[in-house]
Design a protein around this nucleic acid. Structure first.
Lengths: 348, 348
DNA sequence: CTGAAAGCGCTTACAG
DNA sequence: CTGAAAGCGCTTACAG
């Protein structure tokens, strides 16, 4: 009764047509009711809803997006560096929660910082007609992002600044966060502060170095280039670099590590040389168990959940309307967490 | 030429119809060529491919799945506990890589161990007609999983054993891994070994406790129930429980923590009481920086990447054919990583 | 081997 | 306010 011949169980899926038949109305009316369109007689709304409930109708968003004028798929995509790294996955979670609140699904992919893979992901996602894109840009995909944006898909770039028409960004105050932390070291009396930095091709790495330089300039102290190591790619490389600096002439009394893995590499070197209680260390970006190490590792902290939430809000805002506002650049503040390693005064 | 009137740029998307027109063939032929169906004259294949390339045609998987007999969407879904927890996200990454190799997209969602949310996710994903499902079951969704499976969607359950028709599982040898680790402690001379366990509703928690009990039985040692704390939900609770046990009469000389967070809670309690160098500690599941703590924390390790790869293989195997094989239960071995904390002999 | 037509589940002009 | 028809981009019987 009311279902297809030969099968009265919800296998072979209930369609709008089934609902229409059962409610005794046309297909178009069912569509209107399901989509909450105005202008349907209250009684028909009632009948359709009743039939849908009775039949266990489930709306097929995918099929609906095909003919839909706005082509909305109730899906957004998130291009991360690596879904398995803590920063990315915390961001992912925040975006998932914000999207879920609006019944939007989030697709994700890992670019591994490869522009080629990033391009492929953006391609895949736009082909699946996502309603919007959040990306941590590896760099080198600006042209593609601009094209996608122009064709109508809202985009929010996260973590790294990107200057594109109507593309919003969310970053943290890398420069200021670093400046303040290095300033603390200077105030503590440190005069020789090493800097460990990530690849210079990465915007955040450049900004953090600027903060380091500004802190020195602000205190009227020159930067000793022999204490600066940039373009470091891994914890191992950071460990090596730190070891070299610490065993050279005029070693530093403090180390600023401008990224997660570099902090850990630096710390390993300090432990290895038995200097962890004598040389100060501050890292950029917090990491799990930093408080349980001896000494606890002081860090400039960023809040990936807050960043993700902000990005999701900007994106959903564009999707639900204000698509022609000019680009906005949201800056999320960093914090400083004193745990001991950054509070070590200069030796002697 | 060959494109829609008034627009010769790739906006307004190139469809199969455009390709057909340009190649001078019928729509069906284009579909056959794009889908690598046999039985098309070599020359036509050539012309279609040429036209597709020239026009920059991109196949719309979503639309194609609508009419397709097998309804494949080239999408699988992964229901995790929390995309942001390290075990989940490492698993996610492994699945992503395996799926990507076959041009399959992976959707994910976080259940937070809530059956209700898990049910909703499974629902959302099946409605979007994913080709398969990998789930870390929170428990309480067996009925739904069985239904989904019966309706044709292959399912692989991960981390926790599930006994359902044609549903494969991938777990680690929780019991054996725990037994061996506790056995090490016994061999070291420990006679009073505390056990910190997760919620008993979780299969892995039960298995690990069994391993603890079996090790004792195997050594002819009774388990002292006063040293056993189960149903612990958080690091804080584990810290409290450990503190209580250690300050009671007849304290343990070793602690086995049957889960990540519990290990950290236990460790905090030990540090707090200044016992970290005198009471042995072994945790189940490795965590970042475990090697940098003092002492390094020894653990029973599981390999989430291996687990994810295995799950993806089983799932893709079912999707690409062998859908009627009986359920397989893959067991991935655990390892033991000695870092010091597990090698502390009993005091005195 | 090939193409015109029907149809996947839905939305959207278009008449009424 | 409502429904029959056309159409989203594609695949699949069905004839030829």
């Amino acid at each position: 009764m009311g279902t297809r011949p030969g099968e009265d169980q919800p296998r072979g899926r209930i369609t709008m047509r089934d609902v229409a038949t059962r409610a005794g109305v046309g297909l178009a009316t069912v569509s209107r009711v399901i989509n909450d369109k105005p202008g349907v007689a209250a009684e028909l709304v009632e009948r359709v809803n009743e039939a849908a409930r009775a039949l266990g109708y489930r709306h097929d968003v995918t099929a609906s997006s095909l003919r839909r004028a706005d082509r909305r798929t109730a899906t957004i995509a998130l291009v991360l560096e690596d879904v398995a790294n803590p920063f990315s996955s915390a961001l992912h979670r925040a975006v998932e929660d914000a999207a879920h609140a609006e019944d939007i699904l989030v697709l994700t992919g890992s670019s591994d910082e490869h522009p080629e893979r990033e391009r492929e992901l953006i391609d895949t996602f736009t082909l699946r007609r996502v309603d919007g894109l959040i990306v941590i840009p590896a760099g080198g995909t600006d042209g593609q992002l601009a094209t996608v944006r122009r064709q109508g898909t809202p985009i929010v770039c996260v973590d790294r600044l990107v200057e594109l028409d109507r593309v919003d960004t969310v970053t943290v105050d890398n420069r200021e966060g670093t400046r303040a932390a290095v300033r603390r070291l200077l105030d503590l009396g440190h005069r020789r502060i090493a800097f460990l930095g990530d690849m210079r091709s990465i915007w955040t790495a450049r900004e953090r170095y600027q903060g380091y330089a500004e802190a020195h300039a602000g205190a009227g102290r020159p930067v000793d280039e022999r204490l600066v190591r940039r373009d470091i790619r891994s914890a191992e490389a950071a460990e090596r670099a730190t070891g070299e600096i610490l065993t050279a002439d005029d070693p530093p009394t403090a180390v600023f590590a401008a990224q997660n893995l570099l902090t850990i590499g630096g710390l390993r070197a300090l432990q290895h040389l038995g200097l962890h209680d004598r040389v100060a260390l501050i890292g950029f970006d917090d990491f799990p168990l930093a408080d349980m190490l001896r000494p606890g590792v002081s860090v400039v902290s960023q809040d990936p959940a807050e960043i993700g939430l902000m990005a999701a809000r900007l994106l959903l805002g564009r999707i639900n309307g204000g698509d022609h506002r000019p680009a906005r650049h949201a800056v999320v503040p960093t914090g400083y967490i004193a745990r001991g390693s950054g509070e070590i005064p200069p030796a002697r």
